[in-house]
Design a protein around this nucleic acid. Structure first.
Lengths: 96, 96
DNA sequence: GCCAAATGGTTTATATTATAAACTTATTTA
DNA sequence: TAAATAAGTTTATAATATAAACCATTTGGC
């Protein structure tokens, strides 16, 4: 009746991050921090989890002399997101 | 940009429970346990949290000689659920 | 009638999580 | 050159979800 919700996406911040990455296809640490309104520390941890799961890839480089961390969603991440949305629907079927 | 997700509803089991109660308007412990596929212990804890928050009311009685715990959603719970659905949409806007 | 199993729950223990505070390193700016 | 800012990471903490263990009652088998 109810589909399981991927615990990796069932987290406010990680969901927000993926939600952004799904549409922009590339975003840096600062952009994500500002758009999600999170603290850097929290973001850092959650990005690492998404990275370990293979949902995103992280590329660390520089913009001028400043460090710059770029994030991109992977195919795995994109699929997981779609599945998550599908799973969620099973919780709202009754309502609609 | 992203609306906060009510932590009380952002939980697989509690969301499933509310999702059921929104449509049936009355359900007992055993029914909820079976439909959600949860353990009784977990269900008991989560029902209590929903009750404390005023999202549901719990009525303990008997069906014959067997104990029977009935649950109903409250107006507060119904509103919270609607808000939760609304909030979630902010995470999927980009996709649609 | 009595013992074993089942029913309907609750309490308690555990392991995971989310989150922010504190910290590091480097770079501007005053 | 000292203070502030920037970009992240590590670490500590508090909250959470979850299931295991438990309790009380009742039913079924002999």
């Amino acid at each position: 009746m109810f589909k399981d919700l991927d615990p990796l996406l069932h987290s406010q911040l990680r969901l927000a991050v993926i939600s952004i990455l799904v549409s922009v296809e590339e975003a840096d640490f600062v952009y994500l921090r500002e758009k999600t309104g999170s603290t850097g520390g929290n973001l850092s941890v959650q990005l690492e989890k998404l990275n370990e799961a293979g949902y995103i890839e992280i590329e660390k480089g520089y913009s001028g002399k400043r460090p710059r961390t770029l994030c991109r969603i992977t195919e795995i991440g994109r699929n997981a997101f779609e599945q998550y949305v599908e799973a969620l629907k099973s919780y709202f079927k009754a309502t609609t």
